[in-house]
Write a protein that binds this DNA or RNA. Structure first.
Lengths: 130, 130
DNA sequence: CGGCATCCACATGGATACTG
DNA sequence: CAGTATCCATGTGGATGCCG
């Protein structure tokens, strides 16, 4: 952890049960970021830069504290997100992407681009959030 | 369904609860392919072309009939996979990617490339050099 | 502010067995 | 061959409340 220095530790290994299969990197990567809110969190950090807990919570409308906390913990374990305490009083934390996390941007943006191209807007949308 | 032709129906809509947010396409796309085996199935179909049920089951080592069946049904509903009965006796089915499914290839390959670049092999011993 | 504790509902996936 | 039908364990997320 705490690799703000620029050098990164080895990340998750290929699981043994699919090693050798050419789809193994696919499913392993999907497992890393495949939880419901992980891509969104990564996208927020890509777009907005380092953020505090409640900043993320506000950004990602509808996510609960527990789920955000769990997700961030999971992302931190996977060395995708870095957690840094930037102030003790008042207590402030800053989440940012590690080098590994940042390298996921092609996937995240590929998802976004696909969505923009292939998903249609809801018709009954009354614009509520700007 | 069953548009093997050159023109596709509108696919899933942007959900109302996140419409307007710039991360909304991200999470919506993630929801489409974010199940455990979806990326692998899509990858198999991209690499191997149209396949039968048991072909996929053999390819994707460890997946059970039920999960594969559920996944394919889900992918079919989402117009990512096309199911075609190619023979009644003996009963044979062929699964293939729709245009929408095929258009997901940048995401799938982005996942694979990331995995190839950032994941280490399980039996590789040159991992803990810090 | 930035969480964690708890409880609960539901979704997901695995194992096994069986069918047209 | 191409699935279904169960049953069950676990995962995941939501709601609420509390704490340092």
């Amino acid at each position: 952890m705490s690799d703000t220095g620029g050098h990164e530790d080895p990340i998750e290994k290929i699981p043994v049960w699919c090693a050798g299969e050419d789809w193994c990197p696919v499913t392993t990567t999907a497992t890393l970021i495949g939880k419901k809110w992980h891509p969104v969190i990564i996208h927020r950090l890509l777009e907005h830069g380092p953020s505090g807990f409640n900043e993320l919570k506000e950004d990602v409308d509808g996510i609960s504290s527990k789920v955000l906390s769990d997700s961030l913990e999971d992302l931190e374990e996977k060395q995708i997100v870095n957690r840094e305490i930037i102030s003790e009083r008042p207590f402030r934390v800053q989440y940012s992407l590690t080098h590994h996390g940042d390298s996921l941007s092609p996937i995240i943006y590929a998802m976004r681009d696909w969505g923009l191209e292939h998903l249609s807007e809801p018709e009954d949308q009354t614009d509520s959030i700007v």
